[in-house]
Design a protein around this nucleic acid. Sequence first.
DNA 1: TTCGATGCAAACCATTTGCAAATCC
DNA 2: GGATTTGCAAATGGTTTGCATCGAA
Lengths: 199, 199
Amino acid sequence: MGGWTKKSLTRLARSAIGNAMQQEPLKPACGTCSPDGECSGKFHELLRLKGGRLTNERKALLRFICDLEGHFRPETLVKLLKDQGFQVSLTTVYRNLSLLVQAGIIRRTDVDDGVRSGGARYEHIWGHTHHDHLVCSRCGKRVEFSYPAIDVLQDAVAREHGFVLERHSLELVGVCPDCGNADARRTGGGAARAPGGTP
Amino acid sequence: MGGWTKKSLTRLARSAIGNAMQQEPLKPACGTCSPDGECSGKFHELLRLKGGRLTNERKALLRFICDLEGHFRPETLVKLLKDQGFQVSLTTVYRNLSLLVQAGIIRRTDVDDGVRSGGARYEHIWGHTHHDHLVCSRCGKRVEFSYPAIDVLQDAVAREHGFVLERHSLELVGVCPDCGNADARRTGGGAARAPGGTP
DNA sequence: TTCGATGCAAACCATTTGCAAATCC
DNA sequence: GGATTTGCAAATGGTTTGCATCGAA
């Protein structure tokens, strides 16, 4: 990588880390959209725009998703709703999830385990600060992180290439502390070592 | 985002850009694995390891994929191979693609158009410098880029959270210069404006 | 009243699997 | 010669669609 020295990169990274440490922690849940908050407003707006109707199913879905933490899959949604006494068909869930994506209330986060995709996940993003994911390749644990420095660089790259950036998806895959430590214990100490990796 | 000022972020980005501009361009194609190069070696190694056999189908697949530029889909592969007189079934392609992924010769790049996934793409990576993708949300054009500063920050984030990083997937989605300019022409000048975006 | 939404079942599509025949070592 | 691969066909699983019915505006 010409033009870069290990030193300059390290300095860059360190300064970014230092700065990022001063960030506020992520809001643990969405505080702005529960009963009749912003999410509802946003959704109603989209419905009005398309001449859509606010059905009971949509109300239930929206309320439920807003209360949900972390990512979820369409099928899980149906099960959970049924548990709470709401009967909504999988079809309807699918149809409305894409609406909610359009409205910017949820987003699709494709889980990439490197071999198979298995099915889409969604997560509630409205009112959450923007974030990306760290995923453990052993246990599947997902950790959210937010890192403005990376966002800024992404924007810069896009501009370099004449692109106007709309969104990005970033997923870091590795071994989480728990799984790594388990390794270390099993092999009798030493640093955790990741298998495979980019050539 | 506490701790960051617009100015400090801009400065960071600018310095990163300046440095990145000095990088060598991406190798346009893989120069190390054509007839009997490294790719073959890598693949043979994996086969030996698993007690696998080097069939004609595998030879054809490997040779063909090595010559391929850009990303491809399993089905396309079958078609293209047939055009060249090689009869390989889709099943076999699928079975061997995952082997090639294991060997680190290709990788899966899931295309995320925000709504549906449509099917996996793969691309030849052995011998290519590591890169990520810019994708145009209008015309689907894909541009490769490589940006060590982002990689360094990703590594830093992972370490912060105690993860040992194995790989990452980064995809920037936006409007490419061509599509953006088309907009500008249609609306009579002015900067291209992206629809939607992260809240 | 009327057009959009729902739910069921069937269609779809990418991917995987069972199994007999072909093939490599 | 015997285990591996292949290819076909059938199964799978997530997602979408056709259509009759239901319900919000």
